[in-house]
Nucleic acid binder design. Structure first.
Lengths: 126, 126
DNA sequence: CTCCATTTTGAAGTAAACTCTAAGTGCGAT
DNA sequence: ATCGCACTTAGAGTTTACTTCAAAATGGAG
């Protein structure tokens, strides 16, 4: 698969794909004899994984570390697991916070609802 | 309250407080006769609100709009409510996505757990 | 073979959200 | 009254995460 195809498939610009590879957020993609990237299924899985984790807000730095550990082989399974657990905990924490903020928004919206009703009442009075 | 106090209270740097005010993310804070900011309780409530909403990822731009609407008075109650509803929906959407990603992380962590057990088994065999 | 779109690289540019600097003012403590 | 720290402003600088650019090479259609 060439870069344009992959770009379309994941809705990530070619530039970003090259950038991700350059900074080590994706493992090196192999090239054909003339130096053009030829993405494998494996590469695509990484891209999908990275896109997903980025969308959840995992920092690029952490994902680079994960890719790095992965490339070092089986010796890093424990470390990778720990990294994922840490990120999961962080995500859970964020979700709890978001829940609270949602409640707060609900409350505020409700207040506005009441304010609007009051306003209407006052208008009808005349 | 002077800026240093407020900064400490909310753990937001003085620079950031001034910056927020400058871009309209906070209503104008009144100054004493010698030009030094004197934050009221009202100001503090705004800061707390902004900090909270920013932490949930609401864009600065949207919050600036909200502050702007607020300053225009009661005519904008409806618009403010709509703005909050939109942000709430967006937040809900994000939370659903985060939930899915949490599941995925759980699954991945579990896989690593199994991989580690397998590794241990292999070691014990010899 | 000729075009023209696509790809390559390294490097420079951009947007958002701060963060810092410079140059100056104000005020409590010694 | 003067030291020194907190405050002021305007504006420059930084960081993160891309994005664009420039110049050269490749690849497929006609």
């Amino acid at each position: 698969m060439k870069i344009a195809e992959v770009s379309k498939k994941f809705d990530i610009s070619s530039d970003t794909l090259r950038y991700y590879e350059r900074i080590g957020l994706l493992p090196h993609v192999s090239r054909n004899k003339s130096g053009i990237r030829d993405y494998t299924e494996e590469d695509c899985k990484w891209i999908e994984f990275v896109k997903c984790m980025r969308s959840a807000g995992l920092p690029i730095e952490v994902l680079i570390e994960y890719v790095g550990l992965f490339q070092q082989g089986d010796e890093t399974i424990e470390a990778r697991k720990e990294l994922l657990i840490e990120q999961r905990n962080e995500l859970k924490r964020k979700m709890e916070e978001t829940k609270k903020i949602l409640q707060r928004l609900d409350y505020k919206i409700d207040s506005y609802e009441h304010a609007l009703l009051e306003k209407e009442k006052r208008l009808k009075r005349f």
